[in-house]
Nucleic acid binder design. Structure first.
Lengths: 147, 147
DNA sequence: TATTGTTATACTCTATAACTATA
DNA sequence: TATAGTTATAGAGTATAACAATA
């Protein structure tokens, strides 16, 4: 891959990542939460993890996760309950108010994506998804090795 | 575009945006700046904008931009000079230390991209870039209309 | 009067270090 | 001793509102 080739990939990739993150942030904001709060709620949709497990999913320090969860709990979006086996640990659970928010933000973002990607034909969209999935897999592999 | 189709696009798109933003953040951090500081420095590579112009590029309030610039100036990465025509305005300029940082972070990220995208053939890469560019254009058009 | 930029204030988010309680 | 989580502290980033200087 030559320099010019790389430069064009970097440019469109960075732009895509920025505008889509900005969209997500905007939709989260409309649902009255920050992007990080939305990420937290999204993780809790099908899990009841401990703070420790959340640090892995979110890639944050336990003190940062503790703060995120406490602020979410203060708003009634999640709840903390005692762990069944380990008396030191807590389980974090999504509350109905939190689920309503994450569902609303998701619907808004999905509608954005549907509108934006309608510029491609069904075949082109399928091709884009297939190629992008391979990129995501390659990124994970690269991270696993290079770190 | 049916629901299943949309869901797969949303999933890979969100994942791609997240991991690439995380990469950029990591590389910025290695270059000793935050992602927002790196964005600021990147904009200044070929421009000497006012604070007002920067609010458009960054999508932030003028008070937020003011703070970003002041913190960057405190570290010697940028400088503020009087505007030639308008006595109220200032011009923000990239200093050599700032240029070194943005160049270093850029090189690291470009190397990441080169490694990751080598999983695709040259033809596939070209196809991915072409499709993604159309998506970015459609996003901008959608934003211009829907807002 | 309107505009440019800064400042005061308040909040979220983040990490490090110290701490408490449990294992 | 080690681990799970919270708290104290410090700093970046963000927005709103009030402000000063200039247009």
């Amino acid at each position: 891959m030559d320099e010019e080739d790389t430069a064009s990939v970097v440019e469109v990739l960075a732009r895509l990542a920025f505008v889509m993150t900005a969209r997500l942030e905007e939709r989260a904001s409309e649902a009255e939460v920050s992007l990080q709060q939305l990420r937290l709620l999204g993780i809790l949709r099908d899990r009841r993890p401990t703070i420790n497990e959340l640090t892995v999913h979110l890639g944050l320090d336990k003190s940062s996760v503790s703060g995120l969860v406490i602020r979410a709990e203060r708003r009634g979006l999640v709840s903390r309950t005692q762990h069944e086996q380990d008396g030191r640990a807590v389980r974090v659970r999504l509350e109905p108010a939190g689920r309503a928010i994450v569902d609303a933000a998701d619907a808004l973002f999905a509608a954005d994506v549907q509108r934006i990607f309608s510029t491609l034909s069904a075949a082109e969209r399928a091709r884009w998804v297939a190629l992008s999935q391979r990129v995501v897999v390659a990124e994970a592999a690269d991270r696993g090795v290079s770190v």
